[in-house]
Design a protein around this nucleic acid. Structure first.
Length: 291
DNA sequence: GCCCAGGCACATG
DNA sequence: CATGTGCATGGG
């Protein structure tokens, strides 16, 4: 019983670049293929075909796709506002076309608890194992587990899946959820109040809460600060500041567009590090040119 | 072996 | 309020 697959065609512009959207660290359940990507979100699967001038997305629910990729927001307008600040120009030019995906709050809560002091490949692997074992079988993929399904997971499984010491944070958080905590209520709270609520969960501090607020609840006035953004601040202002102070600084500077600015700064800094590493390795391995 | 990764909980000044 | 420490685990 194959479901009918519908198609949406999106022109590649400075406001839509599928690689930058997926690789900028806001989403973990996707796989790269030679034709493009397959993206899994809540209980949906999206097949992304990359072409020269456009991107095709196949899914059985086109309205879901439009909402997921935030297609009703005017990104050109947002970028214009961000580029008032000179230091934003390079990141926006380098990693153009980022959009903030509208993801499932439950999936963000679990994903970003796992993300703390972790690396992206391992975060991906851990989430994949959880979905494969406990998510609903959708035929050729697995949905993200519901609260009821998550509540069936023994704590040992989280460690086996690679969550490490975060196993107890996941277990405690899921217990709170299955005892009736209403995550959806946070949509209607002001950012500051919603953040206080999220920090009540084990394994959720300021940074993890801000990622959930931005990627799960669409609160674009938050500016999540991780180790890379701390480096960005150091490079811009010449001094180190604790992460919460860095967040406060940029949230004041960018206001309602802080989340968009953060994605550009975070991703550009991370890409730059990756390039530097490759250069270092090339130098080490180079035995012929004497460089 | 070392250091680091989309930090947090917890203990202590 | 601020600062310091331990933490599972895999990759470079």
């Amino acid at each position: 019983m194959e479901k009918k697959s519908l198609e949406i065609l999106i022109k590649n512009t400075n406001e839509f670049n599928i690689t930058h959207i997926l690789e900028c660290g806001q989403v973990f359940r996707f796989k790269k293929h030679d034709f493009g990507y397959i993206v899994y979100a809540s209980d949906k699967k999206m097949e992304v075909i990359c072409q020269k001038n456009s991107t095709k997305i196949f899914c059985d629910d086109i309205e879901f796709v439009k909402n997921y990729f935030d297609m009703s927001t005017n990104y050109a307008n947002i970028k214009k506002k961000l580029m008032v600040h000179n230091f934003m120009q390079k990141p926006i030019k380098e990693v153009y076309g980022i959009r903030i995906l509208k993801q499932l709050p439950l999936e963000m809560l679990i994903s970003f608890i796992i993300s703390a002091n972790n690396n992206i490949p391992r975060i991906k692997k851990t989430l994949e194992k959880i979905c494969e074992k406990y998510g609903t079988n959708m035929g050729d993929y697995y949905a993200f587990p519901t609260i009821q399904q998550l509540a069936n997971i023994p704590i040992e499984f989280f460690k086996k899946a690679g969550a490490g010491y975060r196993d107890k944070y996941l277990y405690e958080t899921i217990k709170m959820l299955s005892n009736g905590y209403n995550l959806g209520r946070l949509y209607n709270l002001k950012t500051e109040d919603a953040r206080k609520e999220l920090i009540k969960f084990k394994g959720v501090g300021r940074k993890v809460a801000d990622c959930i607020l931005l990627f799960g609840f669409g609160k674009t006035d938050v500016f999540p600060t991780d180790t890379w953004v701390v480096k960005v601040y150091k490079e811009l202002y010449g001094k180190n500041l604790p992460a919460n102070k860095v967040s406060e600084h940029f949230e004041k500077l960018f206001g309602e567009n802080g989340g968009y600015a953060q994605q550009y700064l975070y991703y550009e800094r991370m890409i730059r590090n990756k390039k530097e590493k490759i250069n270092d390795n090339n130098q080490k391995n180079c035995t012929t040119c004497g460089c």
